[in-house]
């Protein structure tokens, strides 16, 4: 699998896929996409990088342990629901704010935070499995 062409292209492909996954995540509320699909794309991106260049560079690149990323995502998703406590509405009610950033109105919501949490859980869990499986060669 570790052909020169694959190894040369893999980093660019991975970067593009991760970028695309974030795009898919963010557009998810109105267009096809969302945290789950975005997470799957990012996980496959990391899997490709791992197959092409080995697991160690991937682990270095994502810095945190993939399971830690997943756990943080789960925590984030749960906390997104807790936010509604401060608004005095039931758990998991969507909350929206529309701040002006550089003159453009940006819709931010607890729902978005939740979706990012879903994204991180999927990326973390899937890539941790994939990376652990790819590590076979080393031992």
């Amino acid at each position: 699998m570790r052909t020169v062409i694959f190894r040369s292209i893999a980093p660019y492909l991975t970067s593009l896929m991760v970028l695309f996954s974030v795009f898919v995540l963010l557009r998810g509320h109105n267009e096809p996409g969302g945290g789950f699909i975005g997470g799957l794309i990012a996980a496959s991106a990391l899997a490709i990088y791992g197959i092409a260049c080995g697991v160690a560079p991937v682990r270095r690149a994502i810095y945190f342990h993939p399971m830690a990323i997943a756990a943080f995502g789960l925590f984030m998703a749960a906390m997104a629901g807790v936010l509604s406590v401060f608004a005095g509405v039931p758990y998991m009610s969507g909350l929206w704010i529309y701040p002006q950033i550089f003159g453009a109105e940006v819709a931010l919501s607890s729902v978005l935070v939740f979706d990012v949490g879903v994204y991180l859980v999927v990326v973390g869990a899937i890539s941790s499995i994939a990376l652990a499986l790819e590590e076979r060669d080393r031992d």
Binding site: G34, G73, A77, M92, V111, V118, V122, A125
Partner: peptide
């Protein structure tokens, strides 16, 4: 829910607590 993608809105808003349970399962399975 301020979203036009019904599938996603169901996942993250209308049925958000379900999704929370599901991602917890994904995490534990991982």
């Amino acid at each position: 829910a301020h979203g036009t993608n019904v599938v996603n809105v169901i996942l993250v808003d209308f049925r958000g607590t379900d999704t929370l349970g599901e991602i917890a399962v994904v995490m534990v399975a991982g």
